[in-house]
Design a protein around this nucleic acid. Structure first.
Lengths: 241, 241, 241, 241
DNA sequence: GATGAATGAGTTTTCATTCAT
DNA sequence: AATGAATGAAAACTCATTCAT
């Protein structure tokens, strides 16, 4: 951004900076997951990344900065994936199912990511103002939660979801529960399995199944579906109308 | 040596010790909630509790000790209350509802407690072996989760819950989700309200409502219960008519 | 000493005090050997002895006091034993051999005692004035080193020891070397065996043998002995006549 | 990253590091001798050396590190000097005498060094595994004790030493005694002189004289014996008659 | 005389951050 | 832009000893 040197050199610089940045973020990311964000010191990040402390301060002025940088990348990835997931679904119920399914897949395939979010939640609760996250969210996903609320609305309209749901209340209630469950399972992982005697993936998919059952409109005469995702339910076509 | 101290002195000593212990735990508890367990140093606890550092070390040998002592007290209280709640309920469905309702009440009336548990979860995930918690649990609640699993089983048997539930899977899935939701709401509190625009109590009760709907047996001709608790539900009576 | 109460009670007191004292000394003695005097805290001694800190301070006002009390007991025992050893020996050479032999037996049979003395030496080197030890020695063994010097003198006179020895120089030189060797072997113990590949008892007896060879008068025509002790040499009777 | 720094900077940095290290070691070394290793705290070393505590921890991570660093330097110096001493000696007896003499010179001229070794012995006895020292020794002096054992062997062969010596037993017995005597004299120093009334140097040289006399072959007619061990003795029968 | 609680004055160690080059 | 050294401020924990009962 700042016109430092001419074109070529600038790009070279840029590439170098980017590479350094990556080294730092990758090292931090790995360490954060292994030992917990709070337990990791700047010194360890420099050690693992191979960058000197003094150099690191030219990229990130403290650990928070690193955490937020990681968060931004994560949210971007997740947001894109989630959007892609929703694109394929034909109707509200399918979109809802796809969304929850996506979270289950994340838990199964990217537990590190979910664990990071769990850690972030804990820090966010205390260390940062809500605005900071909301700003970030609005950059990454300008439409906000409206998309999700819309799903409920649509589902009610097409009769696949219970009529007594309150769109923007229900969606947040459900999303919060699913996220809460997902992150709890990811961070407690093996401990949950030890205590409950069930693999976390099955627990989470059962959670999703029950929630979808709870959202679905009653008496819809036997919905049947062809879903390929491993979960529960999904979509009432044709609805009885 | 053993038969030295008579009744009085012992009790006096004991009472004193107990009072000191309380001062420390109360100070810690307050600080932990205000600023986060990780952020609190032993020095601060001594400062707030008014005991000298060296004295404190005669009661608790480190912060973990304090955390676990608080946890034990909390779990004891919660366990007792939860048991009392279940006693009054006439059938499985009522017991289930009562249980979830109890968690909603906790969130509404004792958010500090719930926030502490949320913090504990985060530490437990990294710093302590599963055995430690399981031992504590078995001391406080020797029956374990069996009580809960039994609820589902009973509900299936009396037709109030869906027949396709897997008792010990479903109960853990639901409990984990509710706990996850509850703790997330408690710790993010006002931030959730800012982002979602809904009070956390309503969000949580909606979560419970949806879950209960998801568990309840479908089109059961006339499930009727006379629940007086404040929650959710809103079940579509008269259906099928 | 201070006429506190009447006879009986005094004795009862005395017996009690003596028992408490013993408990403390025994605990300290054990701990000192296991983990090193410097590493042992007063708190540990109270813990192991079962006596409260505040009580202990009525017996010993600090760790040094305990160390010196142990030292006194040790020196008394050793001194008595050593004297007894010397009594049986018929002549200078036998007495010398018996003395050194006695030290070898101590190393073999009472390594703890020797290790304590090694530790004491290290502390004595820094923490206490020479007078303190000299006073103690003069109480326990009023004759001092004269006895030993006398042995050399006698041995020279009877022709069993080299004529060119300087009694009070040589005896101290030899005693210091033997003590130095003995304590080094006792405290380094297994490490010496690891490094040198020889059991410490054999090393020590070889040291004694060489020293005695070095002290003995040369060309002594036919020394022959009847020693029952396991060690070295001993004595030329009848000599030269 | 690797090919960054050219010659100059590296050396400059290095030189600085080395100077700091020296300051710390010198301060420690002085304090250790004056007041005893155990009595010296890291805080005092920083105070005397003039570096901040936090800086010091970038050089040595604890007191042990410092002790071992000093030990290494000491052993290197001593080892070199000792080797040089042996080079000049024409035969086994001369080498043996030179070796012991060297120890006497050390005691006379470098009592601090010897006192440090005495202190090290005491710590080594408790605080460190034998391997640690053996590793260091093998780095500094890869030939090990073989050189010394060889002296005895050679001396026996050329008739200057008693034939009944057991090379690797005797050498260790003698070395241990001499070292034990030397370190005891160095650490008790003035106290020994007070108690014994003789200067430590004379005492030590007398010890050496007696030991050498004990090792030397009795003059003339080839003593021969068959004893292997245990007691030794070795009294020359029938001789001289 | 014994007890148990209390404590002040250390000690080691850590870490985010700055500074001169 | 990068480096390596330096460091202030604090954190956790220890321990000999005293005091009120």
């Amino acid at each position: 951004m700042p016109r430092k040197k001419e074109k070529k050199p600038v790009n070279a610089y840029h590439a170098h900076r980017e590479r350094q940045r990556r080294r730092i973020l990758d090292a931090a990311w790995k360490l954060f997951d292994e030992r917990g964000i709070d337990r990791i010191t700047m010194a360890e990040i420099t050690l693992v990344s191979g960058v000197q402390p003094s150099t690191m301060y030219q990229y990130f002025s403290n650990k928070d900065d690193i955490v937020w940088a990681i968060l931004r990348e994560l949210m971007q990835e997740v947001s894109e994936r989630a959007k892609r997931t929703l694109e394929d679904a034909p109707n509200a119920m399918a979109r809802l199912a796809a969304l929850l399914d996506f979270l289950a897949d994340e838990l199964a395939n990217n537990p590190i990511r979910v664990r990071f979010m769990a850690q972030f939640d804990a820090m966010y609760a205390r260390d940062w103002p809500a605005e900071r996250l909301m700003t970030l969210e609005s950059q990454i996903n300008p439409e906000g939660f409206e998309v999700f609320t819309e799903i409920i609305r649509e589902g009610i309209a097409d009769g696949s979801l219970r009529a007594d749901l309150v769109p923007d209340l229900t969606i947040h209630a459900v999303v919060n529960a699913v996220i809460g469950a997902q992150r709890r399972l990811a961070s407690l992982g093996n401990k949950i399995e030890l205590e409950y005697g069930k693999p976390i993936d099955r627990l989470f998919r059962e959670t999703i199944r029950v929630l979808l059952l709870g959202l679905r409109a009653p008496e819809s005469p036997k919905p049947r579906q062809s879903r390929k995702w491993k979960t529960a339910d999904g979509s009432t076509r044709k609805r009885s109308a």
